[in-house]
Structures are given as structure tokens and as C-alpha cells.
């Protein structure tokens, strides 16, 4: 477990950081869907160029992205290898009942590319949007749901707290596992049985700590008169600015160009 991890906010002074969170969330969702509509390599190429352009704009070092890619690489490899075996089409070679087909190869390549794009697009969102902006954005985007008597501010508070607790718990997990290692627990060495044994020494205390912290936080919030029934006002009110409109226009142009490009060629 490292200090920098997937989904953590990384502060720089870029344009992307300044964009309205609602816009970023909506665009991320759209681009995530679009990445699954990619039909050919040219489309994937086009998409990657766009993503790298945004990464450049975000001023978050490439190093940071590549560090967290390690964690999702396994998932990407797994899904793309699964696709390799489960496709019909002209057989390239076969060993017994395992057949590798041309469509299988193509499918698995595309799955890998799509997941990679998905990873980059969502990383851009989490690196450039602070947890509080993120929840405000979600809250604002979900507001229409309040018609169905869903308590949106409650929901967004839950999301904020969940996100806030990720680094805290990670930090606690590191502390506890260091303490157990100091007593000879074999957390990252030794055989599987020993490791599983040692893991109990981390998970049980972590479980207790998280309950304690959650309880403390609940008490602290209540003692400052937090209530989910009342309507709370916002310190930062989300409002579309000039750069948001221009970013929106630019993205729309990119999307339209992609759609034409993708389905005509």
C-alpha cells in the first residue's frame, strides 16, 4: 500500500481542476459510455489522444497515473484474456479444446483498450476533483431524484464520509500492519497459511478502529447540531462559468467528431 493510490485527489493549479464538478462527472460518464462504442483502432487512437491531451492539461504528472495503473492492470489482463478464449470466428491456432480465434484476439485487444480508457477517464476525474467538490457535484446532479422523496443531502453526506474515510483507514491499516510486523507477523512474506493468519491481526483491529472512528465522528457531528432533516446551505455554490461553457463546447465537438468518425469509416 502506497501513499498515492487510485482515486486520490492530486492538487495542481490546472484548468481541469477549476472546472465545475458537475461538468466533469457528467463528461466522465459520457466518455466512459463512448469508450465502449469504439469500433476500430482509429477510434481508440483518437480517444487516447484526447485523453492524453486532458492529462497534459490536468498537470498531474504521468508518473502518478502509471503508479495507480498497476492496481487495475490485473483486472484488465484478466478480462482481456477471458475474452481471448470465448469468441467464435476463424481459428488461428488450437490446443485441444482451447481455441484462439481472430475475433477473440481482436475482442480482447479492444476490451483492454476500453478498460484502459475507462481507467484514465475516471482517474482524471478523481485526481482533479476534491472529495467535497465531488459530492457537491453528485448532490446537484441527483437533485431531480428528490421528487421521489430520496434524501439527497443525506446520500451525499454518506458519499463524502465514505471517500473521506478511505485515506484514514488506509493509514490505520498501514500503522496496524507495521505494529504486527514488529511482533513477527508475516504479512508480506511466508506461506499462504501464515499470511492468512497474520491478516487477522490487521483486519480485526482495523474493523474496531473504523467503528470507533465512525462513532466518534457521528457524535462530533451531532454535537455540532448536524441534522439531515434540515436543509443545509452551501459555502461554495456551484455555478457554470465561462471556462465551463468553453470546456463543454470543446467536449461536445470532440464527442460529435468521434461519433461521425466512428460510425462512418
Amino acid at each position: 500500500m502506497q501513499d498515492v493510490f487510485f482515486g486520490q485527489y492530486y492538487l495542481t493549479d490546472s484548468i481541469i481542476h477549476r472546472l465545475d464538478a458537475r461538468l466533469k462527472i457528467a463528461l466522465t460518464l459520457i466518455f466512459a459510455v463512448l469508450s465502449f462504442l469504439i469500433e476500430n483502432y482509429a477510434g481508440a487512437m483518437y480517444f487516447f489522444i484526447f485523453v492524453f491531451f486532458i492529462i497534459m492539461l490536468s498537470k498531474v504528472p504521468f508518473k502518478i497515473y502509471f503508479k495507480s495503473i498497476k492496481m487495475v492492470l490485473l483486472i484488465i489482463l484478466f478480462t482481456s484474456i477471458m475474452n481471448l478464449f470465448y469468441s467464435d470466428g476463424p481459428i488461428i491456432f488450437a490446443i485441444g479444446s482451447i481455441r484462439i480465434t481472430q475475433t477473440g484476439m481482436e475482442n480482447s485487444a479492444f476490451i483492454a483498450l476500453r478498460l484502459l480508457l475507462l481507467f484514465f477517464v475516471s482517474s482524471i476525474l478523481t485526481y482533479t476533483t476534491s472529495p467535497s467538490e465531488f459530492t457537491h457535484g453528485i448532490e446537484s446532479l441527483l437533485r431531480p431524484l428528490s421528487v421521489f422523496k430520496v434524501n439527497i443531502s443525506n446520500l451525499s453526506m454518506m458519499i463524502t464520509l465514505a471517500l473521506r474515510f478511505v485515506p484514514i483507514l488506509l493509514n490505520e491499516a498501514n500503522k496496524i500492519s507495521a505494529a504486527q510486523k514488529a511482533r513477527g507477523a508475516q504479512i508480506d512474506s511466508g506461506n499462504l497459511k501464515k499470511r492468512v493468519e497474520a491478516l487477522g491481526g490487521v483486519i480485526i483491529p482495523l474493523f474496531l478502529v473504523s467503528f470507533k472512528k465512525a462513532n466518534d465522528l457521528a457524535v462530533a457531528m451531532e454535537s455540532r447540531c448536524y441534522s439531515c432533516e434540515r436543509n443545509r446551505t452551501k459555502m461554495k455554490i456551484l455555478k457554470f462559468k465561462k471556462i465551463d461553457y468553453s470546456a463543454l463546447l470543446f467536449s461536445l465537438a470532440v464527442i460529435v467528431a468521434f461519433l461521425i468518425f466512428n460510425f462512418q469509416i
Binding site: E172, K175, I176, A178, A179, A182, G184, G201, I204, P205
Partner: peptide, 17 residues
């Protein structure tokens, strides 16, 4: 050597399990 160096962390009571 590990066992020859005994390390008691801050708030060590949190590691009991």
C-alpha cells in the same frame, strides 16, 4: 534480528486482536 528489536507503537492498544 527482528525479535531482538521490540517496537511499541503509538496507541499500541489499537493493535490488540
Amino acid at each position: 534480528l527482528r525479535y531482538k528489536i521490540g517496537l511499541v507503537f503509538q496507541n499500541p492498544e489499537e493493535q490488540l486482536f
